[in-house]
Amino acid sequence: MKSLILTTAALALTAGMGLADTVRLGTEGAYPPYNFLNDNGEVDGFERELGDELCKRAELTCEWVTNDWDSIIPNLVSGNYDAIIAGMSITEEREEVVDFTQGYTPPSPSAYAALSADVDLTGGVIAAQTATIQANHVVDTGATLVEYPTPDETLAAVRAGEADAVIADKDYLEPEVEASDLIFVGDDVPLGGGIGMAFRESDDEMRAKFDAAITSMKEDGSLNTLIEKWEVGGTW
């Protein structure tokens, strides 16, 4: 489903490029610091800067599109945009349907956050966003899973006492924990194989371009700079 454009980005027309097809980047726009809408309603965050830089290096014109998390993969394979760059962890399940680039963040842990330290993480009530690897993990631990459609509502559920704890990417929880009375509880949980961009399986050529761009950003250290700037977990 087509969505509102947030801006046209990274115009990188170099000599020799005949057909300047735009690459449409799909994101959720509700998962800071990875991607969120800033006060002007534009896509902002770590992935916004990363995506713009990658497009520049791959000499492509890119456009940002937001799409509901629930239908983000069906809309990719049906061709409504060309890539997903939305804090999406690389998992086997997803690999069956889409192809990922190499991870642009190292595998980052998920974490539990709660209002008090004495929460039962395997027997209590844990909130998670629907259709995430964290939701799957909660089911596996045997805890009671409560699902909400957006990450924001999972936090609200803990604050309201509906759930004992929330599980999400640690990088997402970090600023929330800093700014409110939530605290981290339990050990970090390593889930997923890092975060990558997802492409249609038939789009190998484009995926290779972005893959190469990620490699070059890793090599010259600019990726690490970005990661540190937005505090999205460990560097390479």
């Binding site: 087509k2 965050g45 957006t150």
Partner: peptide
């Protein structure tokens, strides 16, 4: 897939920390 009033009400109403706004 149309960003309607409910979409924006949810987006704007959700709690916001000072890092991103």
């Amino acid at each position: 897939g149309v960003e309607d009033i409910v979409y924006w009400a949810k987006e704007l109403g959700g709690s916001k920390t000072a890092n991103f706004t």
